[in-house]
Design a protein around this nucleic acid. Sequence first.
DNA 1: CTGAAAGCGCTAACAT
DNA 2: ATGTTAGCGCTTTCAG
Lengths: 400, 400
Amino acid sequence: MSTIRDVAEVARVSKATVSRYLNGTLALPPDTAERIDAAILALNYRQNSLALRLSLGSSETIGLAMPDVANPFFAEIADEVELAASERGYGLSLCITRNQFDRESLYVGWLDTQHLDGLILVSNRPDDGSLRALIGQRRNIVIIDEDVPGAEVPKVLVDNVQGGYLATQHLIQAGHRRIAHVSGRPRGLFTVQERCEGYRRALAQAGIAFDEALVCFGSYEREFGATALAGLLALPSPPTAIFAASDYLAVGMLEALRDRAVNVPRDMSIVGFDDMEFASLLMPPISTMRQSARDLGRTDVDMRKSIDALSYLVEPLLAQNPRLGQPVRVCRPRPHKGEVSVLGSHRVRSGTRGSNRGISHHPHRSHSAGLHSRNLTLGLKGMELPAREPHRTIAVARVS
Amino acid sequence: MSTIRDVAEVARVSKATVSRYLNGTLALPPDTAERIDAAILALNYRQNSLALRLSLGSSETIGLAMPDVANPFFAEIADEVELAASERGYGLSLCITRNQFDRESLYVGWLDTQHLDGLILVSNRPDDGSLRALIGQRRNIVIIDEDVPGAEVPKVLVDNVQGGYLATQHLIQAGHRRIAHVSGRPRGLFTVQERCEGYRRALAQAGIAFDEALVCFGSYEREFGATALAGLLALPSPPTAIFAASDYLAVGMLEALRDRAVNVPRDMSIVGFDDMEFASLLMPPISTMRQSARDLGRTDVDMRKSIDALSYLVEPLLAQNPRLGQPVRVCRPRPHKGEVSVLGSHRVRSGTRGSNRGISHHPHRSHSAGLHSRNLTLGLKGMELPAREPHRTIAVARVS
DNA sequence: CTGAAAGCGCTAACAT
DNA sequence: ATGTTAGCGCTTTCAG
């Protein structure tokens, strides 16, 4: 490979001139410009990005650290983040933590070694303070999906309480009184806690007593769905509906129910959580709380564009758009097809996803092919996020 | 952040000494070593990876270019590749091409700019020669999943002919005579061509005439599954079974069949292709040809370890293991749970995936919850891949 | 054993 | 408008 020096020699100018010309910081007389262009072409010159980055002191790369990318929920986030990053000329380093602290630690360390300019962190463990300490005062981390309490960085989290509330309410409105809740572990996980809190609120509002026997905490995985289900069915008075805190859980339950020849939704109603894209591929499709992985991914990178907390990463972008320090709307997602996006307020309407014409609010009634499916769509809630307040939380809640 | 220079000053030695000590190329007297250690600790020194990489002329990063990572099939590959890369100390740059040539081109270019040391390329377009030309003589690319004809680089491809053959044979053995085939587009895509070829072979072998009306090429996507199905059902003499060239296609068909209240598998049998992890979550679970995304990912990075075609990437690894130029077995995957892995030969046995006890070979008979499910497992075929023959193809074929 | 110095390829003052 | 020079932080000859 040829270097800028070769180009300079061939074009009979200095390295600096070539460099400035290439970066557009200089208007050259046509003849010199042409000589340089010709040299570049002749030598098939390409900027060495390593040297560039060393010189600039920035890797032009952001990291996305998540427990697992084979899980469709995370994969969707990754897809969206990659898009946002590449649109801005950033590379994306994929960092799979497999839920281990030492791996999270490794990747956070990459921020110091210039390996990464910024890090999008999806942790899925309850933090004992180590991760928070590790994050420390860093200004180039964004936390999404699961909170790391105490960490003073921008966060993009889902309104899990609201989600749990709506899911449960959905079942109550369908006539259920005995509603179980199956969720992850440990209970200390914010997503677990909050979804459960929403569940309790909905019950309370409907005057249904909370029954400890009807809630199980184990994991968000499929396997636990089956286990939990067995336990619930063995109760003296089993539930008629279940709010599962993840779609994977719901799937595990569906499998177990199928094995026991229990008809869904006739004999058991289920609401999931996550709205992974494949949820609608299930037969029967289950209701699920939508927390859009794509919005989590997208919103997050929008933040980078506007918050000076991420100044390290954002400086080059701000340079082009010097409204520095002004409050900016950070969460302005386009509405998805068939949805109404309501900024700043919640509004519920019936959705259009899937083949759910002839929607029935009663789970014991079903349409066309004997399936139960009802969608709610809750608009995104956008918030003004003033500069200099990097650790406020953006709630993105959706239901479908 | 402190630099090696700071460390040197505090430890009262030269930069060079620190550098060599850190790289283990030097044994130091205990006292000097201690001084350096202390300085590193005190200053919280970390190697700047940008500088390191510029100096070394290698980015210690490989790229994974794929059309889409939200698709579970690709996501599984990504997961596996990340694991392999991180185990070897490489970073992984995720490059989503969205099936556009200019994006593929961009990422291939990163090999020249030192941005990437190696590239794992998953293209999903039929190549008109541009991509092949772009790849040219580069020695640090590996192609997986879909062939780029003419490109002389290592490839990890599935034996699609065999896959199509087995899928079709499965249906024939179940008693079907009118079997449709629905696949992607354009027909020029190798995966499309080969799977169809396998389909034809199986038909021929069973003495069933090939009927043009029963094959549809459109796309691997779900939507086309529904479209194609409508066409097939409208035929004067519709098929009783379908071999779908992707699981997404099969899912689209299942949905369409459900809408028409056609019972699967009683009135229509379907075999898919890919064995995405979520395939078994479908209800009813469909039979599917297993081409293990994970094996594609894993095998590939194993190749990097042993083939000198990838010398650029592999040199640091070979340095530790100087059996340079020796033939190495590159494809030695561990058998999955419940499977028999047969190197160098094919063997069929009944599998153990899912809840398929009481397997029925007849699609019109079904077990427990009224579902049709039959699994075949074909062992991996491993090949000796001699050094200096980087562009031989490894066939990984599995069925389940 | 250890240090001085050159160099990786580029950018960015500072000159001219 | 262009050249000169000094770094960016590290590794690696080459000397001592």
